[in-house]
Amino acid sequence: MSRPKKIVLIGHFGVGKTSLIRRFVENTFTKDYKVTIGVHISKKEIHIKGDTPLTLVIWDLEGLDDITKMRTSYLLGTNGFIYVFDLSRPVTYENLEAELEYLKTNYPNTPTKVVGNKMDLVNKAFIEENNGIFTPFVDYYVSAKLGSRVETLFTKLAEALI
C-alpha cells in the first residue's frame, strides 16, 4: 500500500470547494453555505488503474481572494492541487492565469487540476463564448450539485500522482 496523498483544494470564497469534497467523499450536496474556517480534512480511499488502492487525504482550506496570502505552511508537502473557480461568478476567475502561474512557480512539479464549478448554472453556449478565457487552463467543468465529473476529477488527479 503506497503512502497517502495530500490533496489541497484552493480557490476563492464560495466557489464550491467544500461542496466538491463532500460530493466526492460522502456523495451529498447541500444548498446552505457554511464558510470553512481554517482547515477541514477528509479522507477517501480510491482504486485506480489496475485496482491499486490509494488513500487521498483532502485538505479543504478557507477561501481567499488572493492566493498569495494563503498560509503556506498548510501547503507543505502537497501532492496534488485542485484549483476551483465558480463559472457563475467572473470575479472568481478574472485572475485565473496569474493565480495558476503563482502555483506553478511556488509548487513546481505538483500536479494541478483546474476546474470550473457550478456547471449547472451556466450553459454550453456560455462556455463557448468564453472559450478564450477557459480553454487554455481548465481541465474539467464540474458540478458539485449534480455530481457531474467530480469522480473523474479526483480519479484523474490521483492517477497523476503515482
Binding site: 503512502r3 497517502p4 495530500k6 480534512i41 487525504v57 505552511s73 507543505l76 508537502g77 501532492n79
Partner: peptide
C-alpha cells in the same frame, strides 16, 4: 507523522 504534509508514516 511527516512534518508539513501531515502524512502518516
Amino acid at each position: 507523522i511527516e512534518k508539513g504534509s501531515g502524512v502518516v508514516l
